[in-house]
Amino acid sequence: NITNLCPFDEVFNATRFASVYAWNRKRISNCVADYSVLYNFAPFFAFKCYGVSPTKLNDLCFTNVYADSFVIRGNEVSQIAPGQTGNIADYNYKLPDDFTGCVIAWNSNKLDSKVGGNYNYLYRLFRKSNLKPFERDISTEIYQAGNKPCNGVAGFNCYFPLRSYGFRPTYGVGHQPYRVVVLSFELLHAPATVCGPKKST
């Protein structure tokens, strides 16, 4: 009989979020998941679920829940969905086509923008091939755009693969920082350890 609540607040209220190319993952297990707390949290810009209804989450049990978190621009949030393409979905964070879970995003301009620009948040701009679902690539190898080998030196046709967002408070909404948490639900042939409040007695 599990009684402790799942530590969703640790994920959602973290002081610093990860850059999207180096997205953070927390495994959540052996706890009671009260999703209504999240669902009623006012400032969400997006709360979209795939393969599961957000209002039914509290009735369900899962083997594991993974909480992935990172920061992207407002106009990139739409790429955090199954079957998407674009710089983020291709080179930074890719969801599987059969994704079961929820994508939760909110504007973090007050936290993550600075006058003069916040350059701490990076994304991958160049990559030889697209990421596989949930693949994480933190390499900083110089990207070779031409035929000539770069030998690890940036220059003509040789690019550092990461780019900084440089968030400023005055940017338009599409270019403002958004914090994103992706909850993915794993249902294995194993005992369920993460259940909603109704199922955990």
Rank of each mutant, 00 (worst) to 15 (best):
T3P: 08
N4L: 07
L5P: 14
P7A: 10
P7W: 05
F8Y: 06
F8H: 02
F8R: 00
D9W: 09
E10M: 07
E10C: 05
E10Y: 05
V11L: 07
F12M: 11
A14Y: 02
A14C: 05
T15L: 04
T15Y: 00
R16N: 14
F17W: 15
A18Q: 08
A18G: 09
A18I: 02
S19T: 04
V20F: 01
Y21W: 08
A22Q: 11
N24Q: 14
R25Q: 02
R25E: 03
R25V: 01
R25Y: 00
K26V: 12
S29Q: 11
N30G: 08
N30A: 06
C31V: 05
C31W: 04
V32K: 09
A33M: 12
A33H: 05
Y35F: 15
Y35A: 08
S36A: 09
S36G: 09
V37M: 14
L38P: 03
Y39T: 14
N40G: 08
N40H: 12
F41V: 09
F41T: 09
P43D: 10
F45Y: 15
A46V: 15
A46Y: 14
F47S: 04
K48T: 10
Y50F: 08
G51N: 14
S53D: 15
S53E: 15
S53T: 11
S53G: 07
S53H: 11
P54N: 07
P54S: 10
T55L: 12
K56I: 07
L57F: 06
L57W: 08
N58Q: 12
D59Q: 13
L60G: 07
C61R: 13
C61Q: 14
N64D: 09
N64C: 11
Y66Q: 06
Y66N: 09
Y66D: 05
Y66H: 07
A67Y: 04
D68N: 01
S69W: 02
S69A: 05
F70G: 02
V71P: 01
R73D: 08
R73Q: 13
R73N: 11
G74D: 03
N75Q: 10
E76L: 01
S78Y: 07
Q79R: 03
I80V: 08
P82V: 02
Q84K: 11
G86Y: 01
G86K: 03
N87H: 14
N87T: 14
I88K: 02
I88V: 09
I88W: 01
A89S: 07
A89M: 02
D90K: 11
Y91W: 07
Y91I: 05
Y91H: 08
Y91M: 07
N92M: 01
Y93V: 02
K94Y: 00
K94C: 03
L95N: 00
P96C: 00
P96Y: 00
D98E: 09
F99N: 00
T100H: 09
V103A: 00
V103K: 00
I104H: 00
A105C: 05
A105Q: 02
N107E: 07
S108P: 03
S108D: 05
S108Y: 02
N109S: 11
K110G: 13
L111Q: 14
D112Y: 00
S113H: 04
V115G: 13
G117P: 08
G117L: 07
Y119C: 09
Y119Q: 14
Y119K: 15
N120W: 07
N120M: 09
Y121V: 06
R124G: 04
L125I: 14
L125V: 15
L125H: 15
L125F: 12
F126P: 07
F126V: 13
F126C: 13
S129F: 08
S129R: 14
S129Y: 08
N130I: 13
N130H: 14
L131M: 08
L131K: 02
L131E: 04
F134G: 13
E135T: 06
E135G: 08
D137S: 02
D137G: 01
D137I: 01
I138W: 07
S139C: 07
S139P: 02
S139F: 03
S139W: 01
E141F: 07
E141Y: 07
E141H: 11
I142F: 10
Y143F: 14
Y143E: 13
Y143V: 11
A145Y: 12
G146I: 05
G146V: 06
G146W: 06
N147M: 11
K148M: 11
C150F: 05
N151C: 08
G152C: 07
A154R: 14
A154W: 08
G155Q: 09
G155D: 13
G155A: 10
F156A: 15
N157D: 15
N157L: 09
N157T: 09
N157H: 11
Y159V: 12
P161S: 07
P161V: 03
L162C: 04
R163H: 12
G166A: 13
F167P: 05
F167Y: 05
F167G: 04
F167N: 05
F167V: 03
F167H: 04
R168W: 08
P169N: 09
T170L: 08
Y171Q: 15
G172E: 14
V173Y: 11
V173T: 14
G174I: 09
H175M: 14
Q176I: 01
Q176V: 02
Q176M: 06
P177S: 05
P177L: 05
P177I: 02
Y178P: 01
R179I: 03
V181M: 03
V182A: 00
L183V: 05
S184V: 11
F185R: 00
F185A: 02
F185G: 03
F185D: 03
F185L: 06
L187G: 14
L187M: 14
L188W: 13
A190K: 14
P191R: 13
P191V: 07
A192D: 13
V194Y: 10
V194T: 11
C195F: 09
C195Q: 11
C195R: 08
P197R: 14
K198P: 13
K199R: 14
T201P: 14
